[in-house]
């Protein structure tokens, strides 16, 4: 069996809100293989966003272990976690999260900046990533000068520029109309096929989720069902 891209073993996450404890995750185990294409699906408040934050190493579990490429992430310091995140995970957010006054190419190059890569190489790799998402002619445009679909594709280029093992996409089509949403999904799927990066979508949209090879249903902080898609079979 190959080393999973990311694995969660019996993770819980408890928030304390105004004195009361809220159990967002109550013992979740999950394994994502390299190159896999999966969706985490569930209604709002189900704990799917918390799960995404834990898988993205943006947050720490209250208990349980998360390993990335076979490496235990829960024992790392904040700085080590930042480095691991930078090298292994790419993010696509619902609201794009681009730096608005910054050119597309510099937005894409941002993860490489924190990896200590020099400006020339950063720009070359960012340009290549923008070409890969079909925005080769928009390199110098600022984020505010791009359409929603273009912005999300810049964000995808940014997520991929560091060649991560896992791409986490949190409602990537949530702020887009059906047509541009479809284009963004196609871009993600093509990159998953071509570059072999594992892609995990987090969504409440069943139609989107059913495009993937595997649906992980989350409800009340637990995985309710985890099954391969009918289409993929």
């Amino acid at each position: 069996m190959t080393t999973p891209a990311i694995e969660a073993v019996d993770v819980t996450r408890v928030y304390s809100l105004g004195g009361t404890e809220v159990q967002a995750l109550r013992g979740v185990s999950l394994r994502v293989a390299p190159g896999e294409y999966a969706a985490i699906i569930g209604p709002s408040g189900s704990g799917k966003s918390t799960l995404m934050h834990l898988l993205g190493l943006l947050d720490r579990p209250s208990s349980g272990v998360i390993t990335v490429g076979g490496r235990d992430a829960t024992s790392l310091s904040d700085s080590e976690l930042a480095v691991l995140r930078n090298q292994t995970i790419g993010f696509v957010f619902q609201s794009f999260q681009l730096l608005s006054r910054t050119a597309a190419i510099d937005n894409v190059a941002l993860p490489l900046l924190y990896r200590g890569i020099g400006k020339t190489e950063r720009r070359e790799r960012a340009a290549a990533a923008l070409d890969a998402v079909g925005l080769g002619d928009r390199k110098g445009h600022k984020a505010t000068e791009l359409s929603g679909g273009e912005q999300q594709r810049v964000a995808i280029a940014r997520a991929l520029v560091g060649e991560p093992q896992l791409l986490l996409a949190d409602e990537p089509t949530g702020n887009l109309d059906t047509r541009t949403g479809g284009e963004v999904m196609e871009t993600l799927e093509r990159l998953n096929r071509d570059s072999g990066v594992a892609v995990v979508l987090v969504t409440h949209d069943r139609d989107i989720a059913l495009r993937t090879q595997r649906q992980i249903y989350v409800r009340d902080g637990l995985i309710e069902r985890d099954e391969p898609s009918a289409m993929a079979q």
Binding site: G56, L58, R85, N86, L99, P111, Y114, R158
Partner: peptide
């Protein structure tokens, strides 16, 4: 705050 969060998500350390 959001910009800082994004930079951290993309790999910025506290020191950066």
């Amino acid at each position: 705050t959001r910009e800082i969060g994004l930079r951290k998500a993309l790999g910025a350390r506290r020191r950066d």
